[in-house]
Design a protein around this nucleic acid. Structure first.
Lengths: 181, 181
DNA sequence: CGCTGATCTGACCGATCGGTCAGGGTCTGA
DNA sequence: TCAGACCCTGACCGATCGGTCAGATCAGCG
């Protein structure tokens, strides 16, 4: 039952994460991943149904937390929802900044794939909660810029301590977002 | 001299801009562009040396303005440099938001190409100016998030009036950036 | 021993990519 | 009328992509 051989499945995940972070999802071929693992491309496709399955497995924990955040937000309204959204998203970005970095620059295309379709709806609700004011365009702009900015950059702060990064981003969010009355 | 035939060169630029905005630079093939223009792929490559040349010609005006901004910033220090950088970048983002949107999600890879190498250095100086404090990590984080956020999202505000968008982004920048003493 | 199932390989597939090339219209100025 | 510049085409190129497939290897088991 228990094999002595190292778990190739996990090695592929680790190698894929490295390559995706370095050259992006589309910029990484199955051959690249196989080379990094030291196996054949066919071996990679033995452990994963296809290329997308590798990405979804890497992102699964972050997506779970995002969905939980979505549920928590929907239980609040107005200023409370804004605060829950800001704190929750900053926390998510800090905890999963390596995973989020894998998607850097490929959010638009990747989110259109069926496997990530619900993520798009969640992020729309997240923007609404962060914006607070449904009517004010400026509030929505600020929320969108903050959301996109944190998503795109958080991966670059791998060397910053979690607590320090969380404090900096939370302070930024509080300044950037318009207060809800 | 003056031909009657429509300027295919410009038609290619327009079509490429549409495709790049819709599916990204890498997600757009020369065949896609040719199909949209209604000519052959070879005709596209008759008017442009290669695929990258189309992008550089589309981005040229925005890059010129960015370089001019870089020069203006370098003539200032501290709080003055921060203000020039913030106003200049917001203005650039608003004026060229369609062009910037073409790069959405492909900044990292595209900036590594030789044709865009100097852009990377300019944006680093831009971040420094926006951050203000050289020593404070939180100030640099705020500047990076703001820069990336605006770059990634400004293309989505195509239906917002220039003046309104500029005012909203400038107000956001003033709130988000840490004041320099 | 032979069998089975898990693991993995190399060879191969069709599609698509960016780019090249020879040649053919078409218009212009001499 | 004709040379030549300009504009464009279809056929083709090598490379690479994600993915398939038949079969080799090997450990554990009855």
């Amino acid at each position: 039952m228990a094999r002595m051989v190292p778990e190739t499945h996990d090695e592929i995940l680790v190698a894929a994460a490295r390559r995706f972070a370095a050259t992006g999802y589309r910029g990484t071929s199955l051959q690249d991943i196989a080379r990094e693992v030291g196996c054949s491309k066919a071996a990679v496709l033995y452990h994963f149904a296809n290329k997308e399955a590798i990405l979804t497995e890497l992102m699964a924990p972050a997506i779970d937390v995002l969905q939980a955040l979505d549920h928590r937000i929907s239980a609040h309204r107005g200023a409370a929802a804004q605060q829950v959204a800001a704190e929750g998203f900053v926390d998510l970005a800090v905890r999963f900044r390596r995973e989020i970095a894998l998607l850097r620059g490929e959010f638009p295309e990747l989110l259109q794939q069926p496997a990530f379709a619900h993520i798009q709806r969640i992020s729309e609700r997240l923007v609404d909660a962060l914006a607070g004011h449904p009517g004010r365009p400026a509030a929505r702009i600020a929320a969108l810029v903050l959301l996109a900015g944190i998503s795109e950059t958080c991966g670059e702060f791998a060397d910053v301590a979690d607590e320090e990064l969380r404090a900096a981003l939370l302070a930024l969010a509080r300044r950037a977002l318009e207060p809800v009355d």
